[in-house]
Design a binder for these strands. Structure first.
Lengths: 235, 235
DNA sequence: CGTTATCTTGACCGTCGTCAAACAGGGTGG
DNA sequence: CCACCCTGTTTGACGACGGTCAAGATAACG
């Protein structure tokens, strides 16, 4: 197992020379396998590590005092589980495995040195951070100002687009790595209502489903319903 | 007019030496006065500038195709209007003056050089970015998982805390720089409903109001209602 | 093959949105 | 100095979107 997935993902954010890529791929790390549902970080924990997903999905979530749970980010292969951990030692959200995961615990000092020495790497990581921020803003718009049906459609569009760029959607269909309950925790809805919206999208032919495998018979149609414009995913 | 406000704000995020401070304060910039309601940046615009607020407030917002408007960030004196603009030339949100503004258009190259040369400055700016991200996450939790009354209370707590750290609240009371309509656009509510919640908070004695000047007779009480814990504002 | 998590559906209810109108304040111009 | 207007605040009546509760059907998993 290598850091290949990470290098490829960073390469999408900035031009990396072969030297840059070799340096990144040569970073010292420890491989870690995490079972579904297990935590990668906990809110308030000291000493957090820089963990990069090699395969599988994770999410970050926060909880309200009333007991509600809000997922604030979905992490995909090649991305850091918690980008803040590169520079600070405490984090105010939980990170949890959405599926079985292979991850790399990268030596922070080595990566920081590499960032200091190589502008292209620094730029790639900065870009990743900016895209994360853009996604957060889009989620705010989604939860705050769109109807339930549009929210669900938008999430499906975003997941499809992101998985497409890392080669995990075959263009025609993809596997949603979330339960409907988890989708609800992203969208500020309840599991029951997400189910109703999925049913409505299915019955009106906007999406087709076999289990969690999803297809868009008409991309423009679902994008219109969702108000989805993929530009925020690539600054 | 000087960049003093900016230097002080950055100094809160990282230890800055006197040299660091002098270098920051000596950055070349152009002063710009912006009237209330005018735009500082528009979504999709090329060539965006690095603008720092010296006095007054601004906000970033996005719009849904249905016409809804979501404010994704409030910018306060000392903060950059659009932190992404330091490194990229396009932005996917609008930035608008909430009050009359004095701003500094800082030469990007000079600031970038300074960041490259001075680790402490680099760290301060990075920290500012991480705090912005933390605020976004907290807003997601707020909109997604809290009741209307808690959302309004939480926003009031956050504004008070942020204005307090920059010396714009006198400890006992502060001026909300937002109309109720704008608060609604932050919270994913309508202006009418924000008004109802403000009334409820006032009548139950959780807050006291004279126009837009607000006091908290009992900090713990409003914090409890809001589920507010200020730690996310200072990683 | 049994057990648990996830999905699905229905009935009912509450929070919040919508629409509309009155009211307060603050700035402008006559 | 007062009349006027514009923006923002306040209030009420009504309706809809989405939440809650509960039960049954499927699918995943050991």
């Amino acid at each position: 197992m290598s850091l290949d997935t990470m290098v490829r993902q960073l390469g999408r954010h900035a031009e990396l020379s072969d030297d840059d890529r070799r340096a990144l791929a040569g970073l010292p790390f420890i491989r870690r396998v995490v079972k579904i549902g297990h935590y990668l970080a906990r809110a308030g924990d000291q000493a957090c590590e820089h963990i990069v997903l090699l395969s599988g999905y994770a999410h970050q979530h926060k909880t309200a005092s009333a007991g509600g749970r809000q997922i604030v980010s979905i992490r995909m292969p090649g991305e850091a589980v918690s980008s803040a951990c590169l520079f600070i030692d405490r984090v105010d959200y939980n990170a949890q495995a959405l599926t079985p995961i292979e991850a790399a615990v990268v030596q922070r000092d080595a990566l920081r040195d590499l960032i200091a020495a190589r502008p292209a790497v620094s730029k790639a990581i900065l870009m990743a951070t900016l895209i994360d921020a853009a996604i957060s803003s889009e989620w705010l718009l989604n939860i705050g100002r769109r109807s339930a049906i549009a929210r669900v459609a938008h999430l499906l569009c975003e997941l499809a687009a992101r998985m497409d760029t890392i080669g995990l959607a075959d263009g025609a269909s993809y596997q949603v790595p979330l339960t409907q309950e988890q989708m609800a925790d992203i969208l500020g809805l309840t599991g029951v209502h997400v189910n109703r919206m999925m049913k409505q999208l299915t019955e009106s032919g906007v999406i087709a489903r076999h289990g969690r495998c999803i297809q868009f018979p008409d991309r423009d149609r679902i994008a219109r319903i969702a108000g989805f414009d993929a530009r925020y995913l690539r600054p």
